[in-house]
Design a protein around this nucleic acid. Structure first.
Lengths: 119, 119
DNA sequence: ACACGTGTTCACACCCCGTTCACCGGCCGT
DNA sequence: ACGGCCGGTGAACGGGGTGTGAACACGTGT
């Protein structure tokens, strides 16, 4: 009933299979994402970040967890890479689908991926 | 067996497992609450307050008890933090589920959590 | 050597959080 | 009707987390 466990179709855990959440489809093997039918080209890091979030769609992913997932190590204090990349991905996604927000900040916790119309 | 002891599914006493009461689901570990399917982002304090109330759903929780649960100390006379945070949480919950009230005041005693349609 | 894309770091601006204050209204005893 | 206590509600404040543009370093292809 809840929005929590959405329709997330992943090819597998570590596999590069496409991930689909609402109007967003991610193709790790091709280095691109489709948002509302529009193609969005993403760099490696950007795509890994988006995938890590989309695989837990509807759930808040902690910053440390997110960092170790994408960067593969513990989050050093002062490292702002996550913020910068969240910003980059947000830009590209929202540019492809204006009026929608995809990555939501939960201060003190982390980020949550969920396509929602902007307030 | 009246309405007091409702269906409260907690992962455990001190655990961070999800709490569910009627159309409200609280995820302390994620800093997130779901109300009628809508995601409500809550701050740390807000979430702790809501959790403390929801874990005793249907029962009146005294102000001192509530304060020591959330703030972890005795309630100093003149401290209005509880009032302010009850207000904040009420706002967010009712914004996500208009026409319903969740936190009820029992003057001189405390607060009671129970989803009820507004009069 | 140069242009380009990527990933990291920096610096500054901004906003949110938690607390406290101020003011208001309702309820109760006198 | 008064004054007291209690709770509702908006706003101000300092501190810290986050947003965001730019500079920088590195690798690659031309």
């Amino acid at each position: 009933m809840s929005t929590e466990t959405r329709a997330v179709d992943a090819g597998g855990p570590g596999a590069g299979g496409p991930i689909r959440v609402a109007q967003v489809e991610i193709r790790p093997s091709e280095g691109l994402a489709l948002v509302a039918g529009r193609a969005v080209s993403l760099s490696v890091r950007e795509l890994e970040l988006l995938s890590a979030l989309a695989l837990r769609s509807g759930h808040v992913v902690a910053r440390d967890e997110l960092f170790s997932d994408v960067w593969g190590g513990p989050l050093r204090s002062g490292d702002r890479s996550i913020d910068v990349y969240v910003h980059k991905v947000r830009q590209k996604l929202e540019a492809a689908s204006p009026g929608w927000s995809f990555i939501h900040t939960h201060i003190g916790f982390g980020y949550r991926f969920a396509p929602e119309p902007m307030a």
